[in-house]
Design a protein around this nucleic acid. Structure first.
Length: 71
DNA sequence: CAGTGGCACTTGTG
DNA sequence: CACAAGTGCCACTG
């Protein structure tokens, strides 16, 4: 059930965009940590762990969200 | 203290 | 058999 639990590669791209979008839309002064992003995704029925969210973040070109509060 | 990054394990596919 | 993706904890950094 590996590919089953795994989202389609197309869905993964959409999830990454959602992460990037929510970070960009939310307050840069109060950045969303990967834990919060993970919680939001879980609320959207996208069940992935914090570890995975952090990896997606990196793939998006975002370093750590927390450090981005400098922007 | 809170958040982040790396390694190893697990499981299906070519 | 080897690879890729997602998941677990620990240790590091600001």
């Amino acid at each position: 059930s590996f590919p089953t639990r795994r989202s389609s590669d197309l869905a993964v791209t959409i999830i990454k965009k959602k992460i990037k979008n929510m970070i960009d839309k939310e307050n840069k002064k109060k950045p969303l940590s990967d834990q919060v992003i993970c919680d939001n995704l879980n609320s959207e029925k996208i069940n992935i762990s914090r570890r995975t969210v952090a990896k997606y973040r990196e793939e998006l070109g975002i370093q750590s969200s927390s450090k981005r509060k400098r922007i």
